[in-house]
Measured scan of single mutants.
Amino acid sequence: MATDAALRRLLRLHRTEIAVAVDSAFPLLHALADHDVVPEDKFQETLHLKEKEGCPQAFHALLSWLLTQDSTAILDFWRVLFKDYNLERYGRLQPILDSFPKDVDLSQPRKGRKPPAVPKALVPPPRLPTKRKASEEARAAAPAALTPRGTASPGSQLKAKPPKKPESSAEQQRLPLGNGIQTMSASVQRAVAMSSGDVPGARGAVEGILIQQVFESGGSKKCIQVGGEFYTPSKFEDSGSGKNKARSSSGPKPLVRAKGAQGAAPGGGEARLGQQGSVPAPLALPSDPQLHQKNEDECAVCRDGGELICCDGCPRAFHLACLSPPLREIPSGTWRCSSCLQATVQEVQPRAEEPRPQEPPVETPLPPGLRSAGEEVRGPPGEPLAGMDTTLVYKHLPAPPSAAPLPGLDSSALHPLLCVGPEGQQNLAPGARCGVCGDGTDVLRCTHCAAAFHWRCHFPAGTSRPGTGLRCRSCSGDVTPAPVEGVLAPSPARLAPGPAKDDTASHEPALH
């Protein structure tokens, strides 16, 4: 009773807030009518008042009428009001819900409408889902798969039609296919003929059939049928067999079959498995989609049935006599038709004709302190090069084509190399640097090759510096006499390219 009084008091307290929050009759008014909170006449009256005075006034009048009803109607109103779709449509209802007392429970059932309790003993237990329907569909599909699609060729003596089998029958139906081979029951999904010589313990000319048996419980189990008994694959494991010639990621696949039913060829011909030897223990289905393919039931050349050999690369099948050149017997292992072999060759040939990528240039590290003349020119003028003790990398590039010797140069053309002071002394051009340390401070000019250098860098042994005729380390061993002091540049003949010694390969005349 306390809860009923509290709900009535809360409705009177929030009546105006609810009326202002509800700006549309749908969905709240319609939901109240659906849950029998508002009768039909009051529903029509509220809609009429909404058209006349507006939605807030109409709902305020409806809530005032609701306060005169019993506690069950008020409880049902609060339940409908706080439904998710009403809270989404009328956003101003959320503060009312947040301020609702926590001790007021809106989930209690309506009085007088409590459903009768059902004894637990009368409640049926839930049924577990079964796979009976899938099993029945598999039974119905198996006879259809064994139905012949056409008439065999005159040369083929193997013609068999499976008798119709009602689904209610649980007995196995067997077809006489000759040579002791028996087909599987209607619940078998796949059958492959297997030679009895590969099964340990088999006697006589009995041949087993590799099947997948579907049981009534819905589970499946792969086994071997020899005669009327089934054997699990673990009985046929043979770890010492060295003649297993397995197909790549293979499961067994029928390579020879008669049109209309699988079996042995007439005249004692023995149908073979995809792999010879003992049956392997793992009978998992292969991951290669080509091995799941269903080959055609007629020859791809003459479009006739009979004894066919199936290609492992495509769905086509052929007569042995229709092949070019014809085959006398079934080859062992994987067999592919000429079209598949030709496609494989065409895929391999473009790969062989692809040009080989060019090898990157060989990189040879230079000892610290040495650099090529090109690196000396590329440096920024007026700045010493940083990191001189790091190992430089010199790339061996292809030799350029031989060019004509340089033409003779006048001494005026070499004027930018040297600057003559007032006393006739050779001065260095701006930006000249030593080729060893890279520093341009207090550098000297070689009178023979006009290269800038430090005496301490080229002659670290402490050799005394002569007063005139300074030469760098590369030119100090040259027998050519030094030019007379005061000459602007060496003779043009000295600039012609010539053979250089091994220790002077990195010091070429550089223009500054």
Rank of each mutant, 00 (worst) to 15 (best):
G268R: 11
G208T: 04
S156D: 09
Q57I: 07
S168I: 03
M184E: 00
R89V: 00
F77M: 02
R110Y: 15
E88A: 12
N179V: 15
P129T: 12
I209C: 01
T232Y: 07
P119E: 14
S196C: 13
L29C: 01
K253V: 08
D70I: 04
A33R: 00
R79P: 00
E51K: 04
P163I: 11
R272Y: 06
L106V: 05
R110S: 10
E207G: 11
P56S: 04
K259Q: 09
S217P: 05
S195I: 02
R149W: 11
M194Q: 08
Y90D: 02
E229L: 02
P148M: 05
S71L: 00
S195R: 12
G260K: 06
K83D: 01
Q212P: 03
P176L: 15
A145Q: 12
L81A: 01
P254T: 06
C55W: 00
V104F: 12
P115I: 04
S217E: 07
T183P: 04
R139H: 06
I96C: 01
Q44C: 01
H14Q: 02
S250M: 15
S156F: 15
C223W: 01
G180P: 00
R110F: 09
R139N: 05
A142T: 06
D4C: 04
V118N: 07
D238K: 03
K243M: 14
S156N: 14
H60Q: 03
A19L: 02
L47S: 04
V206W: 03
T151A: 14
R92A: 01
P119L: 08
R15C: 00
T16E: 15
P143H: 11
G178I: 15
A134H: 05
E40V: 02
G150C: 14
V256N: 06
D84W: 15
L10T: 02
A160M: 02
K221I: 00
E270W: 14
E270M: 13
K50I: 06
G112K: 03
K243W: 14
K114Y: 15
A145M: 04
A144C: 10
R15S: 01
R92V: 01
R79W: 02
A142V: 13
S156Y: 08
A145K: 08
N179S: 07
A19V: 01
E88I: 04
V199D: 08
R79T: 00
L93Q: 01
T3P: 01
T68L: 06
G267R: 08
G228I: 00
P254A: 08
A186I: 01
P200G: 08
Q182R: 14
Y90M: 05
P115R: 07
L29Q: 03
Y85R: 00
G91A: 03
F43R: 02
E45Y: 01
V199R: 06
V226E: 02
E51D: 08
K245I: 02
G204S: 07
K243D: 02
A21D: 00
R272E: 11
A58Q: 00
G204N: 04
A141R: 10
L87S: 01
A21W: 00
K259P: 07
E229W: 01
A261M: 12
K111L: 15
A160R: 10
R127Q: 08
V226T: 07
E137A: 14
E45Q: 12
A2G: 05
K50W: 02
L32F: 00
A152V: 12
P27W: 09
A33N: 15
R15H: 01
S185H: 00
Q262M: 04
F236V: 08
G218A: 10
D238I: 13
L32C: 01
R132T: 01
S234I: 09
G197M: 04
T46I: 04
V118R: 04
A265I: 09
F77C: 02
S169P: 15
S71E: 12
